[in-house]
Amino acid sequence: MDFREIANVEYLNQGDFACPGCAAGLSMRHALKVLGDETVIVMPASCWSIIAGGLPTTALQVPLMHVPFATAAAVASGVKNAFREKGEPKKNVVCWAGDGGTFDIGLQAISGAAERREDIIYVCYDNEAYMNTGIQRSSATPPGAWTTTTPTGNPLIFEKKDMFNIIASHNPAYVATTTIAFPDDFYAKFEKAKNAKGFRFIHLLSSCPPGWRIDSKDSVSAMRLAVETGIFVMMEKEGEQEIKVTYKPEKFKPVREYFKLQGRYKHLDEETINVIQERINKRLKKLNLL
């Protein structure tokens, strides 16, 4: 993409509370450049509850409503329908939630909103654990990863919950996975989500330097490697269309390279890494990528 086309406007104020290298902050900044000022954010408990700043300040140039952990999709349903009743049906009502608020505690409300065809955009920035409370495992935590509640690594019997297909099975207007490490993919998907009508869902992989045990400077590289090793696949499904993979590297790198960069995987032995590599290969084959 031509980066000169990126809107020369900032909806994220300077001086937010994101950690250095936090992809959740970066993702919000660019998402809002696409979504624009006719946007309302509904935000459950997450790192972003802190990043957004304490009362009476705000990090955003759009209206922002903080809400209880399990309720984002339901609150957004109320907000959106209220705007429609007020004769303002075009407002973008956007949930901005972490993986805990999406994969775990908020899932029921999301399923309800998706099934009711609520006209909202749900964005999950997935940093693969409860990072705001200090790195506890969620159902988005990958097998093998260290967290404070999986001190010997997330057991291999668990697999990261397949949120893309859970949402896809609700027949939403749009569902996609992406990461800000691939800005052209990221921008294209937010554009599609913005222009579709109905329930839209974007799953963002979002690196977390303290939680992933990486250097701040490696934040974007880590997300790139996730895609290049195939542990995270960028895809989308538009309405009735088939699932489309939107980026395929010429050759997938071994997942070992992705793990090497991150302290949360440093305890993994060769055998475990091979098991995980096998699982990735199996999934890539299923998607016709191998």
Binding site: V42, T71, A74, G78, K86, Q108, A109, G112, R116
Partner: peptide
């Protein structure tokens, strides 16, 4: 709004009222 639980009924009410 035919929500899927009372938790969501209260939550949607909160959203609508805040709007």
């Amino acid at each position: 709004i035919r929500v899927e639980s009372e938790l969501s009924a209260a939550a949607a009410a909160m959203g609508a009222s805040q709007a």
